[in-house]
């Protein structure tokens, strides 16, 4: 296959970037999208041009590192998959593919296609945990969790923190990411002790990071590689309002 690429190139966070065109011949349809970038980088390096910087690690769809906005959609045309799980057979010979980084105020570009997603870490640090010290747990089977509840919690916990939800949202909102964690711990009995404070603190941190508000377009859920449901956003809204109305934080 022949592929034309338009790739966002930006030296660092302080400089302006632009789309640069590249042409690749001999792209195999069995290549993953990132392997196509490896091939591009190999040829750029041999020519003495700076290779394209992009985030990637496990290349099997679970670490959440890869993050490319491909032809107008996060992680490209496939749904339920990350960029590293996208293969060139999803494209046609001669296609032009535009590749940009995630765009959000809270995700500043570091270089080329790489962005800084540490805002997500700070949101989790603000309350995305159960306060239990090592060694103080009781026997695991003493907490009964019906299968349906465990399954629902697992659906939320499947989030890989890639940020596709933010990238897809017209408001760059992080509601799906934040709600997945709030919801997981709100469903489970282990999360009950701190559920009010958790919702309040995580939402406050989300706002402080500069993410937008939720317009319920549903784009986040469609583009989420783990297909996390909008139900969790509703649950977080409920948790947050309930917490605000009844918590002791006057």
């Amino acid at each position: 296959m022949k592929i034309n690429l338009k790739v966002w190139r930006q030296k660092n966070s302080n400089t302006e970037g632009k789309l640069v065109e590249y042409h690749l011949d001999n792209v195999s349809e069995d290549m993953s999208f990132l392997e196509m970038f490896d091939v591009l980088n190999d040829s750029l390096t041999r020519k003495g041009e700076d290779p394209v910087t992009f985030d990637h690690d496990c290349r099997e769809g679970i670490c959440g590192t890869c993050s490319m906005y491909i032809n107008g959609r996060p992680h490209g045309p496939q749904t339920g998959a990350t960029t590293c799980q996208l293969h060139m057979r999803s494209f046609n010979d001669g296609d032009t593919i535009v590749v940009e980084p995630w765009r959000a105020r809270a995700f500043p570009v570091i270089k080329d296609l790489m962005v800084d997603r540490s805002a997500f870490d700070r949101i989790i640090q603000s309350g995305g945990y159960v306060s239990v010290n090592t060694g103080s747990a009781r026997d695991a089977n003493e907490i009964l969790i019906p299968r349906t509840i465990a399954d629902e919690a697992m659906d939320a916990a499947a989030c890989i923190g890639c940020g596709a939800c933010v990238a897809a949202c017209k408001n760059a909102s992080a509601m799906l990411f934040v709600s997945a964690k709030v919801s997981q711990l709100a469903i489970l009995p282990q999360g009950q002790a701190e559920h009010k404070e958790r919702a309040e603190r995580m939402v406050a941190q989300m706002d402080a990071e500069g993410f937008g508000a939720c317009s319920f377009t549903g784009a986040c859920s469609v583009e989420c590689p783990k297909s996390i449901s909008l139900d969790h956003i509703a649950r977080m809204n409920r948790e947050y309002l309930g917490a605000k109305l009844t918590s002791d934080n006057a």
Binding site: Y129, T134, A140, I145, R147, Q190
Partner: peptide, 12 residues
Amino acid sequence: DQCVAQGVPFAR
């Protein structure tokens, strides 16, 4: 025990 207390959603 520790992981369950943290909210790890093991299969049930």
